[in-house]
């Protein structure tokens, strides 16, 4: 089944999703990957929000409550009118954010994380505790996803580099699949267990 989700997303909507559900996401989301997660963890979760970062903290608190982080390092073009445009914007591998993700979900009240490859136990537990899901975008489908990015509203921390900055974007009908739900279920765990069983059978055979 396909569900349309509009940001901000309620906990009730999230609890209604199960692994395998297809989702079309609408609203304003933030990209954030390795540097962004380390930054949020160092400054706001482990750290006590240094003065220089207070403005950024407010932006994230407002933008991420009921919101979504997308693990993505886009190709971006600056247009003649000075506005940015997403050229290619597929997901990056999410597992690198495993040490941070559950804390970021809890701290900012995220309802979903988009990426690829899935995440592990700590994030799955975080999703269950805080009412969030992991949404799998189609890896490599960069042009198609960029088409669903209708507007680049802002960029924060561009000094991290284009791929690593926080890009604040408005998306329409961004296609994803729920692969980790808020009930402790992970499609990745199921496929992994099944494939490892098959591998052992082949190796023994």
């Amino acid at each position: 089944m396909t569900t349309k989700l509009t940001i901000p997303i309620s906990e009730e909507q999230i609890r209604g999703l199960k692994i395998g559900d297809q989702v079309l996401l609408n609203g304003v989301i933030f990209t954030g990957r390795d540097a962004a997660h380390k930054y949020m963890s160092d400054n706001f979760i482990k750290g006590s929000c240094p003065d220089a970062e207070k403005e950024m903290y407010e932006i994230l608190r407002n933008g991420l409550a009921g919101g979504v982080i997308y693990h993505c390092g886009p190709v971006v073009r600056k247009r003649d009118d000075g506005k940015y445009e997403f050229v290619a914007a597929g997901p990056t591998t999410s597992i690198r954010e495993e040490p941070y993700q559950a804390d970021v979900i809890g701290h900012f009240g995220l309802r979903a994380v988009i990426g690829k490859g899935g995440m592990r136990d700590k994030t799955l537990a975080g999703c269950q505790e805080h009412g969030a899901v992991y949404l799998h975008a189609i890896g490599g489908a960069a042009t198609l996803i960029a088409e669903s990015v209708k507007e680049v509203l802002n960029v924060h921390k561009l000094d991290f580099g284009v791929p690593e900055a926080f890009w604040e974007i408005r998306v329409e009908d961004f296609p994803c699949v729920v692969t980790m739900d808020s009930h402790g279920q992970s499609l990745h765990d199921k496929v992994r267990a099944d494939s490892e069983r098959k591998l052992q059978a082949i190796l023994a055979g």
Binding site: G73, P74, G140, A142, T143
Partner: peptide, 9 residues
Amino acid sequence: TARPICQDT
């Protein structure tokens, strides 16, 4: 559209 297939080029 002559755009990168994947953003990780």
